[in-house]
Design a protein around this nucleic acid. Structure first.
Lengths: 158, 158
DNA sequence: ATTGAAAGAGTCTCAGT
DNA sequence: ACTGAGACTCTTTCAAT
């Protein structure tokens, strides 16, 4: 399956640090990890070539941007073979930010981000209910996000 | 509540572009959006001061790093007043990457990232079951992530 | 593989508009 | 507010180890 990685402690430390803050300079990160800036550069280049590092992204406070209503929707399909078709329709809804095919209670699990409850209602009733193949849905509205963090790789050793 | 934002189309275009790729230079992004690099710089600085932009993060392929098992856990609490205490215990588990307090079927909703099914079982049976206040849990294992994207702000107009 | 220094590219500041 | 140019900082390359 997945090829062997052969990453060492330094690689994992670089990944961990820059997942949390990619603005630090190679020189400064090198100082923290007791190597030169040039070594940080070489390692990041290697991680990019391996496809592990995929670039950098601006971190944005979505709540401050007005997306105050986060909801998770569990979806029951009429037939599980309808997954691809339903997924395609769901992706057309801009408020849908995440979509997983799951085992367990639901066949699909979706996350949506809306600006208010009216927009949530619109997405649920006017957009999702029209999609062919959805039997019914269950909505969980997030009242509070207590944690949203990266995976913890720094202690991994190969 | 939330103060008025007063962002214009250019602000939203900058946010949208850099949420997807923060490596582009201000000069190049300015060319795309028909302003100078200096203007991009001023806008980003403003967005940082407003707390909307919170920095940049390294984007990593967690699947390639070995975290192949993503699961969502719905949690039923014995009493909903136990939320804070249970949340505190859940945060101690490194595999827990996200934690929401929710309305609907479950009281809490958790996402975990594991390297294999055995680690998932360990987290579920040995770590989560020992937490006081959890009545029972339901697990959804993600068989496929079809979509994981940012919110779409580019068409917003203030 | 790592280092340190030079070359190249990007950010940041500011005077002018 | 936006621009463009200069000062400054960071990334990237490379010869030496």
């Amino acid at each position: 399956m997945a090829g062997k990685l052969n990453l060492d402690k330094l690689d994992y430390q670089i990944i961990q640090h820059m997942m949390e803050d990619a603005e630090i300079s190679y020189a400064d990160l090198g100082k923290k990890l007791f190597v030169s800036g040039g070594t940080i550069h070489v390692r990041i280049k290697k991680l990019q070539e391996m496809g592990i590092v995929k670039g950098t992204r601006l971190a944005v406070d979505t709540h401050k941007l007005g997306y105050t209503v986060i909801a998770f929707i569990g979806i029951y399909l009429e037939k599980s073979s309808l997954y691809d078709s339903v997924a395609k329709d769901l992706m057309k809804i801009p408020e849908v930010v995440r979509l997983n095919y799951t085992t367990g209670n639901y066949s699909m699990f979706v996350e949506i981000a809306c600006k208010d409850i009216n927009q949530l209602r619109f997405v649920l009733h006017d957009q999702m209910q029209k999609i062919k193949g959805i039997e019914r849905t269950e909505t969980l509205i997030s009242l509070e996000e207590s944690l949203n963090r990266n995976i913890q790789v720094a202690t991994t050793e190969g």
